[in-house]
């Protein structure tokens, strides 16, 4: 189902147990379609149960229409479609793990 995706990078989002950052966007070509990906770093430095962190990727989905308008905050909005196919998810996960050295890949 098509849905809107707001292009937004984030510097430091703090929680009590750590923080994360969304550093850059990335386009991955897959079956002649463009998949949009967000790469970030998370730090868990004050969780009740340990210390950790990771590099991670978020995958909003296929781009249907790229940057169609700007929202009230002046951020670009695209139309995307979520990726639910397990095999395809696996392929994209492998690419992102190899190319961007992320440990976690999540599909939004």
């Amino acid at each position: 189902m098509p849905r809107e995706y707001v292009h937004e990078l984030k510097s430091e989002i703090r929680s009590i147990s750590g923080s994360y950052e969304l550093e850059y966007e990335l386009a991955v070509e897959m079956d002649r379609k463009t998949v949009i990906c967000l790469i970030g770093t998370g730090i868990v430095d004050n969780s009740c149960c340990g210390v950790g962190g990771c590099r991670f990727a978020l995958v909003p989905g296929y781009v249907l229409s790229h940057k169609i308008y700007r929202n009230d905050e002046g951020l670009w909005v695209s139309q995307v479609e979520s990726i639910s196919d397990e095999e395809l998810r696996g392929k994209i996960t492998n690419i992102l793990k190899k190319q961007e050295l992320v440990q976690q890949v999540r599909f939004l």
Partner: peptide
């Protein structure tokens, strides 16, 4: 679990 210490998390 990414917090529990493990040789291969």
């Amino acid at each position: 679990d990414y917090l529990a210490f493990c040789t291969n998390p």
